[in-house]
Structures are given as C-alpha cells and as structure tokens.
Design a protein around this nucleic acid. Structure first.
Length: 191
DNA sequence: CCTCCGATGTGCT
DNA sequence: GCACATCGGAGGC
C-alpha cells in the first residue's frame, strides 16, 4: 500500500490520545526518501524513527508546537502521514482545557492545534498506535468518507505535489497556506 | 488575499 | 554560530 493510500485510509478513523478522541479529517502524505518535503529525505537522528516499523508515532516540534505523524513504511522508504486536523468527538472537557475558548470546529484544526488538543508531545514518540496505551487508532470506518486532495501546507520543496487529503466539505479542515518561498515545480498534479 | 512575527529545536557550516 | 522550519495568530491591503 502506497503512502498516499495509507493517508487516505486514515481519514474518518478515530484517534484517542490522553483522554480525547478525534475523527481524523485531514492528513498529509510524506514520501520519505523520494520526497524532498519529508523530514526523512535526509536521514538524521530526528528522522531515524521513520526508518523503523510502521504505525509508530513520529512527533516533532516546530515554532513551539508539536506535530504528530504516523510512520507508514516500508522502512526503506521512510514514509509517514502527518495528522493535520480532526473533529473532537469525545473528551470535550479536556479538549477545551487544553485549547481554551475556541469554536468547536477549531479545537483540532491544524497540526499544532490537533496535537495540543490530543495532549500529544515528544513523550509519545515511538508509540505504536495499534497498541497504545496513551495513543490508539480506531478501525477503518464502515463507509469511507468522500476525499479531496491538494498541495501540502507550508512546504517549500515539492510544493505542488497534491498529497494533502481531507474529508470533502468537513468544517474542521484547516485553510491552505502556501510556503512564502515555495519552489515552483514542473511536477504535474496526479490527483 | 497577503505579510509579519513569536518562538524554539534541528542540522549544517 | 546560524539559517530555516510539516506552525498559528494577528493585522494590513
């Protein structure tokens, strides 16, 4: 299964972490060694986790925020899927405690906000989401949601690769932002 | 739509 | 030392 198929299969699934459950509504695929936008494009201590088994969490920090990815493999490819948005479906009390007074749809909108509402930090690095216990992924939904695709948010390289996937029309999905110095690319959109 | 900027860790030189 | 980043909020046009 390709990283794009893995990404798509995560949409609509529930993810429970530290007392809050979300339904995943937006993700981005990062192709690893063949994807200049992936942290695994250069193999470093930080990206090493993505060269390991699938289903583990890769958590990194940026500008003071945490972002969570699920490693999808195969290990030699080091692909992963960034969790970008989710609809809070349980644990609203904790969710508001962590996020403050925001509109319900905004609780888990954006990768930093999603990690925050789920209480995910680098302490969760390496957790197998099939096992937990602190972070657990639910089964695939009986009816898969309709999916839209477009370029990934905020990446400078491979900026036009349409590997951001979201549940069509879902109000919790974040807005598209192009990187201010995104490289124009000759890649042809494939989705 | 756009640009700026706080804030902080990572990787390169 | 230093440039830059899978960000997010605010503010200007």
């Amino acid at each position: 299964m390709s990283v794009l198929e893995r990404a798509r299969s995560l949409l609509g699934r529930e993810l429970t972490a530290h007392g809050v459950t979300v339904r995943i509504t937006e993700v981005e695929a990062y192709g690893g060694v063949t994807d200049p936008a992936s942290h695994a494009y250069t193999r470093t201590p930080r990206s090493e986790i993505m060269y390991g088994p699938s289903w583990r969490l890769y958590v990194y920090r940026i500008h003071g925020h945490h972002c969570a990815n699920i490693v999808t493999g195969p290990s030699e490819q080091a692909a992963a899927v960034l969790l970008r948005a989710g609809e809070v479906v349980d644990g609203h009390g904790l969710a508001y405690e962590r996020r403050g007074e925001v509109l319900p749809d905004a609780l888990g909108r954006g990768p930093g906000n999603l990690a925050r509402v789920l209480g995910i930090t680098t302490a969760d690095l390496g957790t197998d989401v099939r096992v937990g216990p602190a972070v657990v992924l639910g089964p695939e939904p009986a009816d898969p949601p309709p999916v839209s695709a477009g370029p990934r948010v905020g990446v400078r390289r491979a900026a036009d690769r349409p590997w951001r996937l979201w549940v069509t029309g879902d109000p919790t999905v974040s807005a598209y932002r192009r990187h201010p110095r995104a490289e124009s690319s000759s890649e042809v959109p494939a989705v």
